[in-house]
Amino acid sequence: MDARFLGIAELAQVPSVAVVVDVMRAFTVAAWAFAQGAEKIVLAGSLDDALALKARHPDWVAVKDGPAAPGFDAVNSPGLLRSFDLGGRTVVQKTTAGTVGALAVKDAELVLCAGFVVAEATARLLRTRASDRVTFVITGEDGRADEDLACAEYIAGRATGAGTDPGAFLRRAAASRAAAELTLGVRQGVHPDDVALCLEVDRFPFAMVAALEGSLMVLRPQAMPSPTDRDPV
């Protein structure tokens, strides 16, 4: 598999297969939303777009980065979102980097959104699709976020069938700028467990596939075989 690792601004053309990585915290939050029962997640292009969707669909759950704000139901924190009952609900998510990255590749043939919590399921889906060339979109810090790059490199290794040990990749993520900012409270809308939750490898047995549904970019979970049924490596 030919893997490329690019920041959002480096996407000169639409890739065939894109894996958009945001470990801390957009796609860890998305995975938790599905685990809490959400049916789908609509990725909003702006805060105004998110609020407009919420206004048209009052039963939808609107999520944003940073502190709580009028019109939004939750913030982009896995530690806080895990207490929500989202059974059958639609979530509208707008974040600084993750949703931006997914919308930047909305015309790709296959778009996966990922973090460590769905790493193996994402790799398995790539192996199932026999993807020859995969573009990993590193969303944080203009493509330099080490937690996102570490996760992308780990998924790429697993997608080739290598018996990749996650330890070194997790240590890089734990030492990242994003992890430090979350731990020190530099960022708002944070739960004390957020970093630990973002570093749980393969917590969930599904990949997350984003696709255009009409004018909306919609993220849905795709169940993959359980870890006990992993392909031989």
Rank of each mutant, 00 (worst) to 15 (best):
residue 111 V to G: 05
residue 55 A to F: 10
residue 162 A to T: 06
residue 162 A to W: 12
residue 189 G to Y: 09
residue 130 A to H: 13
residue 107 D to A: 13
residue 59 D to G: 05
residue 183 T to F: 02
residue 90 T to I: 11
residue 60 W to N: 13
residue 183 T to E: 09
residue 166 P to A: 04
residue 131 S to N: 09
residue 153 E to F: 00
residue 140 G to C: 09
residue 122 T to D: 04
residue 101 G to Y: 00
residue 57 H to E: 09
residue 163 G to V: 09
residue 163 G to I: 04
residue 107 D to E: 14
residue 78 P to D: 04
residue 100 V to E: 10
residue 65 D to K: 12
residue 119 A to C: 06
residue 140 G to W: 07
residue 186 V to Y: 09
residue 91 V to D: 15
residue 63 V to T: 13
residue 145 A to M: 11
residue 59 D to A: 08
residue 88 G to Q: 03
residue 156 A to W: 02
residue 162 A to E: 06
residue 73 D to W: 12
residue 61 V to S: 11
residue 170 L to W: 01
residue 191 H to N: 14
residue 120 E to H: 04
residue 60 W to K: 14
residue 134 V to T: 10
residue 74 A to Y: 08
residue 137 V to L: 10
residue 142 D to R: 12
residue 175 A to W: 00
residue 162 A to Q: 10
residue 82 R to P: 09
residue 146 D to C: 13
residue 133 R to F: 08
residue 194 D to I: 11
residue 95 T to D: 06
residue 102 A to D: 00
residue 172 R to C: 04
residue 52 A to S: 13
residue 104 A to N: 00
residue 193 D to M: 10
residue 184 L to C: 10
residue 142 D to Y: 05
residue 77 S to D: 09
residue 133 R to H: 15
residue 114 A to F: 06
residue 139 T to P: 15
residue 179 A to N: 03
residue 194 D to A: 14
residue 118 V to A: 04
residue 138 I to A: 14
residue 111 V to T: 01
residue 182 L to M: 10
residue 99 T to E: 02
residue 184 L to E: 08
residue 160 T to P: 01
residue 81 L to S: 12
residue 87 G to N: 11
residue 130 A to E: 15
residue 136 F to A: 02
residue 67 P to Q: 07
residue 189 G to K: 07
residue 105 V to L: 01
residue 138 I to R: 03
residue 99 T to V: 03
residue 153 E to Y: 00
residue 181 E to G: 07
residue 169 F to Y: 11
residue 132 D to G: 14
residue 146 D to W: 05
residue 131 S to K: 04
residue 57 H to K: 15
residue 67 P to N: 07
residue 151 C to P: 05
residue 66 G to A: 01
residue 94 K to Y: 08
residue 93 Q to K: 11
residue 64 K to P: 00
residue 140 G to M: 14
residue 67 P to I: 01
residue 188 Q to H: 06
residue 155 I to V: 04
residue 171 R to P: 02
residue 111 V to R: 06
residue 119 A to T: 03
residue 79 G to S: 12
residue 127 R to Y: 12
residue 72 F to C: 15
residue 132 D to Y: 11
residue 188 Q to F: 03
residue 62 A to L: 09
residue 185 G to K: 13
residue 118 V to N: 07
residue 109 E to G: 09
residue 192 P to L: 12
residue 88 G to V: 01
residue 165 D to H: 08
residue 145 A to V: 14
residue 87 G to D: 03
residue 115 G to R: 01
residue 59 D to S: 12
residue 126 L to T: 06
residue 63 V to A: 07
residue 144 R to N: 15
residue 166 P to H: 01
residue 80 L to P: 04
residue 98 G to P: 06
residue 153 E to C: 01
residue 102 A to H: 08
residue 135 T to L: 06
residue 152 A to F: 01
residue 144 R to T: 14
residue 174 A to K: 12
residue 68 A to L: 15
residue 129 R to E: 10
residue 128 T to C: 13
residue 189 G to F: 02
residue 186 V to T: 10
residue 117 V to M: 13
residue 152 A to V: 03
residue 68 A to R: 13
residue 180 A to R: 08
residue 181 E to A: 09
residue 134 V to G: 00
residue 195 V to S: 13
residue 65 D to W: 11
residue 78 P to V: 02
residue 93 Q to E: 05
residue 123 A to H: 01
residue 161 G to L: 03
residue 156 A to H: 06
residue 66 G to F: 00
residue 180 A to G: 06
residue 158 R to D: 07
residue 156 A to N: 03
residue 91 V to C: 15
residue 122 T to A: 05
residue 184 L to Q: 14
residue 137 V to C: 04
